[in-house]
Amino acid sequence: MNPQEIAALLTEKFGSQILESKLDAMNPWSAVEPSAILAICQFIHSDERLKMDHLELLGGVDYKDRIEVVYVVYSMKFRHRYTLKCRLTRETPKVQTVESVWAVANWHEREAFDMFGIVFDGHSDLRRILCPDDWEGYPLRKDYKFPKTYRDMPV
C-alpha cells in the first residue's frame, strides 16, 4: 500500500480524529487526535490490509509550542511504512500507551518519559530509563537548564 491509500484508509475509518495529513513529505505522516492513538494503533496493527506489526521508532519532539510524539510504523508483511504524530501540550503531555500493541513500545515510551516528561497513560512500568531515577527535569526539552550539580557532585 502506498501512503495515499493508508491515509485514505485511516480517514475513512477514523474520520475527524485524523487532524492533518502530509503525504508529499519525505516521510508521509498524519497527525492524529491523542485520545484516539491507541484505537488507531490497534487498527493499523491488526487490519489485514495494513498489518503494521513493527514499531520502528517512537520518540518525542519538542516544538516550543507543543510536544509531538512520533510513531514510525512498518509492516514486515507488506513492506510499507507510515508515520503517526500526536500533538500534546507542553504543560501536561499525556497520551495513551501503545504498549499493548507493540511490546517494544514499553522501553521507547519510558525513554520518551525520561527525556520529555511525556506521561503514557496505562503504562505498566513508567520509570526513567536512561537517566538516574532521581534526576530532575526532562533533558531533551528545549527549555531544559543543565544542572550545576547532581547530588552535590559537580556535573
Binding site: E56, L57, G59, V61, V70, V72, A103, V104, H108, E111
Partner: peptide
C-alpha cells in the same frame, strides 16, 4: 540491526531534533 535516524530540520545549521532508533535498545527490551 536496523539503525534509524529521525532528523527534524527547522532550516538551521543545527538539527532541531535528532532521534536514533537503536537496534540494541529494542533487542534489550526483549
Amino acid at each position: 540491526g536496523e539503525l534509524g535516524y529521525y532528523i527534524v530540520s527547522e532550516g538551521g545549521v543545527k538539527p532541531h531534533r535528532l532521534k536514533v532508533k537503536s537496534p540494541c535498545f529494542t533487542v534489550m527490551s526483549a
